[in-house]
């Protein structure tokens, strides 16, 4: 295996924000002091004002290209046409980070516009590893793979999710994007132990942390958390974030909103809060280490 180009931001970079179209003009005018900007690849596979704005912003900010449609978990393999379009965008923007999800999005020529759950089996592991290899060799760089929020689990899964991700790292040399809110959503919906989960991830591979809000819904008469990125980061997720920062100190943090988008100022305030809490958690880590 040849070494892949790294996919990382400078350590200790300030938190970044997800750039969404309604904030684009304001970000261009104000140039807020955030560590980086993350965009969904699939919103920029086009010409026109959006793409040109991003090229201008690329001069002032490190970028992260977060793909949602490569469908790394598809048994039918990677859609080459889509991979080529993402590759062209990555070539054009030269982003600091490129990421995708541990999920699948389509079958039989239907794209289902969602991050769908996988059974964690040896078969799925081999398929996802092959698909990641395909993407990384086309992009000639390492990608980060994100732990998903899932609303169902398959009875024939045999591998715990952190072990599945760790095995992908060792087979493909990919990195991990650890979404703290997704872990919290899965903890609440499926009763995972979050600290156990974090200990299961290979710390050196985690290059980015995601923070977002969720929505509480009803399913079959019971509360279920839906990861809709449409609310502020909740207190429990901030507490998990402090643990995550200590476990993955080199990872950069992103504030992610996708629906019920608040004013840009609210995203910037959350990014500043992430920086503050990160510094606090790392200081606590240092003082623990000194008193030990």
């Amino acid at each position: 295996m040849r070494p892949l180009a790294t996919s990382s931001l400078p350590a200790r970079a300030s938190a970044g924000i997800g750039l969404r179209d309604p904030h684009r003009v304001e970000v261009e005018e104000r140039r807020p002091p955030v560590g980086f900007l993350e965009v969904h690849a699939e919103n920029y596979l086009c010409g026109g004002p959006r793409g040109r704005a991003l090229e201008r912003l690329a001069g002032d900010y490190p970028l992260s290209v977060h793909a949602v449609g490569l469908s790394l978990g598809s048994a039918a393999g990677i859609d080459v046409r889509h991979l080529e379009r993402v590759a062209a965008l990555v070539d054009r923007l030269a982003p600091a980070l490129v990421s995708e999800h541990l999920s699948w999005s389509g079958a039989a020529n239907a794209y289902l516009n969602d991050l769908l759950p996988l059974p964690y089996t040896e078969e799925a592991l081999a398929i996802v590893a092959r698909n990641i290899d395909r993407v990384q060799s086309r992009l000639a760089r390492r990608i980060l793979v994100e732990n998903p929020s899932v609303y169902l689990r398959f009875g024939h899964s045999t591998i715990p999710e952190p072990e599945f991700l760790a095995e992908l790292v060792s087979r493909t040399d990919c990195g991990i994007l650890f979404d703290v809110n997704n872990l919290y959503v899965n903890q609440r919906n499926h009763g995972l132990d979050p600290l156990d989960y974090m200990r299961g991830l290979p710390a050196a591979a985690v290059g980015e942390l995601h923070l977002a809000g969720h929505h509480v819904n009803d399913a079959d008469g019971r509360a279920i958390l839906i990861d809709d990125h449409g609310a502020p980061v909740c207190a429990a997720v901030w507490r998990l974030y402090a643990q995550a920062v200590r476990r993955f100190p080199e990872a950069s943090t992103l504030i992610e909103w996708d629906c019920r988008l608040p004013p840009l100022a609210e995203l910037l305030a959350e990014a500043a809060e992430a920086d503050f809490r990160r510094a606090q958690a790392l200081a606590a880590e240092n003082s623990d280490a000194q008193s030990a």
Partner: peptide
Amino acid sequence: LRTIVDDGIAAEARLAIYRNHYRITL
């Protein structure tokens, strides 16, 4: 449905979350 773990929320209700997401977002 038989492949999905039914732990308090029926498999149909779990799948309906994905079906609704597909329909609403599109």
